[in-house]
Each structure stands twice: as C-alpha cells, then as structure tokens.
Amino acid sequence: MREIIFDTETTGFDPKNGDRMVEIGCIEMINRVTTGNTFHAYFNPQRSMPAEAEAVHGLSDAFLADKPLFAARAQEFLEFIGDSPMVAHNAGFDFNFINAELSACGHPIVGLDRMVDTVALAKVRHPGAKLSLDALCSRYGIDRSHRTKHGALLDAELLAQVYVELRGGRQIGLELAADSIEIVTETKVLVQRNRVFRQPRPHAATEGELAAHAVFLQSVDTPLWGA
C-alpha cells in the first residue's frame, strides 16, 4: 500500500485570511516503509512573512524571494502524490492550505476522503496524553535533536516514524490482519477485523465421571446440587 506522509509550513493559520503555503515536504511509504522518494519545495508566497511565523520555521522574505510560485510546481506535486492516502499531523490544517493553493491555480483539490490524521490516531491510542509531534517522538524514542525549527521535510520524516508506531510498529502483522479494513476520520479510528471461528470443543462429562459424581453425592447430606 502506497501512502504519502507530508507536512507544510505557512505564513499563518488560515488561507481564507490571505495566508499562504511556503514549504511542503512529502515522503513516499509503501507498506509502511519509506522508499527514499520525496517531493520537497519552497514557494514565494507573494506577501510578507509575519515575524511570528518566521520564528517557527525560519523562512524569511529574503530566503523565499527567488523561490517559484506554487503554480509552477503544482503539476509535479500532483503527479508525486497520485491517488495515495495523505498522512499529516493535524491533517485538516495542511489540507486547507494545499487545497487553497491548488484551487487558486486552477487544479482540482485533494479529496478529504484521502486524509489520514495522525492526531486522530494518537487520540485513540493514547487518550489524554500530549499529542504534539514532539511529545509523540519522545513517547516512541524517536531522535529529534536535529529539529531546532520546524521544517516541512524534516517534520515529515519524523512523522513517518511516528506513524509507523501509531499503526503498531514494525510488527504490524501482529496487530492487524492482512485482510482487515481500517477507516480513519478526524475523530476516531474504526477497525473491522475478519476472524477465523472454530467449532466449540465438546465439554460433556464422560460416563465414568458421571458415575464417580453420583457416588460422591451419596456421601453428602442434602446436597444443594443433587436435585
């Protein structure tokens, strides 16, 4: 199964307010193993970078000034992701931005039915725990010492490791049957497993056991179970 693990960096929180995507990093996984194929790009947002956003990812106006517009690489991005499921942390945020950018340059949006949200997965597996990418890396012993600022490709690489753990680790086969069906929404995970049912084994007492029991009852005064 092919999946795309991805992350974005932006100028803010909401494309409806004029915020733009400035970086995207995508990693290809097949059967929950990274293949080494990636798509990574920076984009000129055609607007200034707020100081608060730059403090998070370190992408300045000067750095982004000579980068292409999203429209220039949109087709390449769409060819890379194909029709594969798209996995992101707090995926609704990232989907809002990539679909806003795709719509702005006349491309079809990515359907939300392809969205897999690792926050939703983590809520099911670790209810009540901290769900940030940093917290999940700590929980699973994933080294993030080189992550001094947010970066789309770096965060996608960390998320790929977290995603494997959320799906049961490298021993996935021990947790999910090969023919199981998994549906992921933003709020919960529904898992249907096909099970093999065996016929019940006979548990009736033998004639010898019944005879021994009858003898035992004769030695008990008014046994409650003798009726």
Results as ranks from 00 to 15, higher is better:
residue 70 F to C: 01
residue 31 N to W: 06
residue 32 R to D: 06
residue 193 R to P: 09
residue 24 I to W: 05
residue 190 L to T: 14
residue 176 L to K: 12
residue 124 V to T: 13
residue 48 S to D: 13
residue 60 S to L: 01
residue 130 K to A: 14
residue 5 I to R: 00
residue 225 W to P: 01
residue 174 L to G: 15
residue 194 N to P: 13
residue 157 E to V: 08
residue 13 F to M: 13
residue 217 L to N: 04
residue 216 F to P: 01
residue 80 F to S: 02
residue 205 A to I: 07
residue 223 P to D: 00
residue 73 R to T: 11
residue 222 T to H: 09
residue 46 Q to G: 11
residue 48 S to W: 09
residue 57 H to Q: 01
residue 115 M to H: 03
residue 87 V to I: 07
residue 166 L to C: 05
residue 134 D to S: 14
residue 194 N to F: 12
residue 224 L to K: 05
residue 81 I to Q: 12
residue 188 K to E: 14
residue 67 K to D: 01
residue 169 G to C: 03
residue 84 S to Y: 11
residue 6 F to D: 08
residue 176 L to R: 12
residue 33 V to K: 15
residue 159 L to G: 10
residue 135 A to M: 02
residue 47 R to V: 03
residue 1 M to N: 14
residue 169 G to K: 04
residue 202 P to K: 05
residue 17 N to P: 06
residue 156 A to G: 13
residue 38 T to S: 06
residue 35 T to V: 04
residue 77 F to C: 06
residue 162 V to W: 05
residue 211 A to P: 12
residue 196 V to D: 10
residue 49 M to A: 06
residue 6 F to E: 08
residue 99 N to M: 01
residue 142 I to P: 03
residue 179 D to R: 10
residue 151 G to F: 03
residue 221 D to T: 01
residue 32 R to A: 07
residue 186 E to P: 15
residue 199 Q to R: 15
residue 71 A to Y: 07
residue 212 A to C: 07
residue 31 N to Y: 07
residue 101 E to P: 11
residue 30 I to G: 09
residue 42 Y to I: 10
residue 102 L to F: 09
residue 115 M to T: 03
residue 39 F to T: 01
residue 191 V to K: 15
residue 63 F to R: 09
residue 167 R to M: 13
residue 150 H to P: 09
residue 108 P to N: 10
residue 144 R to M: 04
residue 74 A to P: 11
residue 170 R to Q: 15
residue 219 S to M: 13
residue 89 H to A: 13
residue 143 D to T: 06
residue 15 P to W: 05
residue 168 G to N: 00
residue 172 I to Y: 15
residue 121 L to G: 13
residue 143 D to E: 05
residue 88 A to M: 02
residue 106 G to N: 03
residue 40 H to W: 05
residue 20 R to Y: 02
residue 58 G to H: 04
residue 94 D to R: 06
residue 169 G to I: 02
residue 112 L to P: 09
residue 56 V to M: 04
residue 141 G to Q: 07
residue 113 D to C: 12
residue 173 G to C: 04
residue 46 Q to S: 14
residue 98 I to F: 05
residue 223 P to V: 00
residue 207 E to H: 14
residue 178 A to C: 11
residue 157 E to I: 08
residue 202 P to Y: 02
residue 204 A to V: 11
residue 23 E to V: 03
residue 61 D to C: 10
residue 163 Y to R: 06
residue 134 D to I: 10
residue 189 V to Q: 12
residue 175 E to N: 15
residue 97 F to T: 02
residue 93 F to N: 05
residue 223 P to Y: 00
residue 39 F to L: 01
residue 205 A to D: 09
residue 14 D to H: 09
residue 113 D to Y: 14
residue 100 A to S: 12
residue 105 C to R: 00
residue 120 A to Q: 04
residue 96 N to I: 04
residue 4 I to T: 09
residue 106 G to M: 02
residue 59 L to I: 05
residue 151 G to R: 09
residue 84 S to M: 10
residue 87 V to W: 00
residue 187 T to A: 13
residue 226 G to V: 00
residue 74 A to Y: 06
residue 157 E to G: 10
residue 172 I to L: 15
residue 64 L to I: 05
residue 79 E to K: 15
residue 63 F to A: 08
residue 44 N to T: 09
residue 103 S to R: 11
residue 59 L to G: 07
residue 123 K to R: 11
residue 211 A to H: 12
residue 149 K to E: 08
residue 175 E to Q: 14
residue 183 I to V: 15
residue 51 A to F: 08
